[in-house]
Design a protein around this nucleic acid. Sequence first.
DNA 1: GTCTATACGTGGATAGAC
DNA 2: GTCTATCCACGTATAGAC
Lengths: 193, 193
Amino acid sequence: MARTTGSHAGITGPKIRQAALRLFAQRGYAAVSMRSIAAEVGVQAGALYNYTPDKQSLLVDLMRTHLDGLLEAAVPDDGGPLARLQQFVAFHIRFHADRPDEVFIAYMELRNLEPDNFVEIEALRRRYEDRLEQILRDGAEAGVFEVADSKIVTLAIIAMLTGVNTWFRQGGRLSLEEVVAQYWDMVRKAVGA
Amino acid sequence: MARTTGSHAGITGPKIRQAALRLFAQRGYAAVSMRSIAAEVGVQAGALYNYTPDKQSLLVDLMRTHLDGLLEAAVPDDGGPLARLQQFVAFHIRFHADRPDEVFIAYMELRNLEPDNFVEIEALRRRYEDRLEQILRDGAEAGVFEVADSKIVTLAIIAMLTGVNTWFRQGGRLSLEEVVAQYWDMVRKAVGA
DNA sequence: GTCTATACGTGGATAGAC
DNA sequence: GTCTATCCACGTATAGAC
């Protein structure tokens, strides 16, 4: 018996987050209405408020979930600095390539976070950056890398790697693994290894 | 005789563009109202329409002006590939550091461009990228650079250099010229020169 | 050239029926 | 849990007085 309305507990919540993710990434947080999210899910706008207190919470949840996932998916941090750096580069590109919408939102919508939320999200991002910086410091200390300023090199590498998401498309000229190899080659040379 | 209203021909137009630039960069195009731009300038919202047909034109004008300026300010493209690459890196960082708001808008508000405008702006950006790619190709051909895929390296370098704007602040730990030197060191090594 | 006033659409969020 | 209906603020843009 088909029914077009009624209880869908357990699936509407995820569908809302999914719809918000897609729409925020495509049009930008400020340009997305609660009504448009509801329409994408197939409910009325009022129903969204059974799952989120407001629009801002929807944005924060998406960012926090993404960054938590990024930190938890951490590659095993073993081996020498060179091996760890290679793992980091490959992990970063693959993880980000799999989640273009999350990445886009996490970088582009920071200014739409209310102050407290901004602090929380920035702290998560900072923790991730610190991992790369630690690898670079260890490598410099061990004499494996030529890194004059580990903070700058960290930010430069992350910007370079994250930039892949602006142009990479599955089924394009290059496979993801070819991209990983090319970027690893550049990073390796850039740190003088 | 002070007057709070009347003709200000010749200054209101630039003030509007300046206010739009600042507000778009700070809050995002979609989150900025014509009223808020007018308030910043010190006029009523209706007065803006003496200077721009609509809000979208304001955005497009800012982007086009920025990218035109970028292309015109081009450094003299002489010398060998290594010298040209160094000039490009230094120019890019300095030019972008001087115009953080323009840069931010030109990268972040692309999705708020109507289709025709998007095509126009993207063509300008592409012309700029092509200049770097040509330098890399020339260097690879001359055997000065080790660049397996000039397109990827172009995008990687531009992402890395433009990323400076996300953290660099005048009066911070490093001077701009120190930043230029550090990035040039990384780029030079990354291309195997 | 700028103002005031306004048309008209759409925004986030809530109340109460089912 | 979802719906319909609604509140009220705010959005872009325009008309007409000064």
